[in-house]
Design a protein around this nucleic acid. Structure first.
Lengths: 193, 193
DNA sequence: ATAACACGTTCACTTAAGTTAAGAAAAGAC
DNA sequence: GTCTTTTCTTAACTTAAGTGAACGTGTTAT
């Protein structure tokens, strides 16, 4: 299971056995049950996550309604903005499946960064890449209609549509569950006709 | 003028006079006229930008229509995704005002990073911060209506609404110029009533 | 087993954005 | 200055998303 993390890191730098041992000894691997809430609105946290298996989701509660904004699955890393800004979180993170993930905190990263300078390089490249990727996702979202966004998601992350409840997908697409349902039947009828 | 860059960097690390001189000697400061296109769709580029004065904008051309996705003004840095992914750009960058900016390329950064390790730390922190900030912007966009997004922009970046043409603002808000115009009169009438 | 709840779909109705077109106002070119 | 182009607004009409409610299904709890 840990190999998944090392496979991920190896995309950026190669690690020695010693370095791998240091990471393992940090005891960051955790197994959590479906439904577990990892972070609540209002909490302060220094934790970053890397999903080895399963799926976690970020959501806001606005007007006592859940607004899902992100899903993180196998081989995806996530650092909540509140960790960077050092302010209370304004959203929740929970597991929508039984999940195996790593939980690392920013103090730990600071320490590892100073011991292994190449780790800082990994962090730099990773966040540069994520920033670029997220910017493209944002641009795509802005420039397309809900229907296009759904079709797009179907292409890029077909697994999500299978494993995630529709009402969570809907707010992820920026619409209401009823609209997603309607939009799907509209697409099906186009395919037929 | 260069002091603006140093003021910006000083938020992350303090620079010695020698280090400042190295940066100045790189000759990255440029003055460009309104309307200048800095990057075209299809081009490859290694350039990152930092705006000292003025405003640059990123936009796609889809179905021969411009879709504006970003504005960068004083003290804002921008690295196009194509620089990270090393693929041809799928959008344009142009100056919507006479602009003074720095243009640095990734080879240069690689060199500076190895000469001054603390520069890599600046880059890491900066991209982590931008990533967190952008995620919050994206979340806000997803969870609000066009009208809310406009009101939000009015609060957060009131200058943009003054200095940017409406049709560019509209696509930045994910709507058509006519809808923005209508939405504005709708808000005005609410204020009255 | 049954009650309670969560989830997805459907429908009728409301609201707002997209579309097309026309005209006024402002900015830029000559 | 005038002419041209761009920008912004307005209006009528179309399309799609939001809203509120009902219903069927499937799951959870007791």
């Amino acid at each position: 299971m840990q190999d998944i993390l090392f496979e991920f890191i190896s995309k950026y730098v190669s690690l020695t056995e010693e370095e791998k041992n240091v990471i393992v000894s940090l005891d960051i691997f955790h197994s959590v049950k479906k439904g577990t809430v990892l972070l609540k609105e209002g909490q302060k946290s220094k934790n970053s996550y890397f999903v080895l298996k399963g799926c976690i989701r970020t959501y806001y509660v606005l007007d006592s309604e859940e607004k899902t904004t992100g899903f993180y699955t196998e081989m995806e890393a996530f650092t909540p903005p509140c960790v960077i800004s050092k302010t209370p979180s304004d959203f929740y993170i929970s597991c929508i499946e039984d999940t195996i993930l790593t939980v690392s905190n920013s103090d730990m990263e600071l320490e590892v960064n100073s011991k292994f300078p190449k780790f800082e390089t990994v962090c730099r490249i990773l966040s540069e890449e994520l920033l670029a990727k997220q910017r493209m996702d944002f641009d795509e979202f802005k420039t397309s209609s809900p229907e296009q966004r759904y079709l797009n998601l179907l292409q890029k992350r077909p697994d999500l549509i299978q494993r995630v409840p529709q009402h969570q997908l809907a707010s992820y697409l920026g619409i209401k569950p009823q609209s997603l349902s309607r939009l799907r039947t509209r697409i099906l009828e186009k395919d037929k006709g």
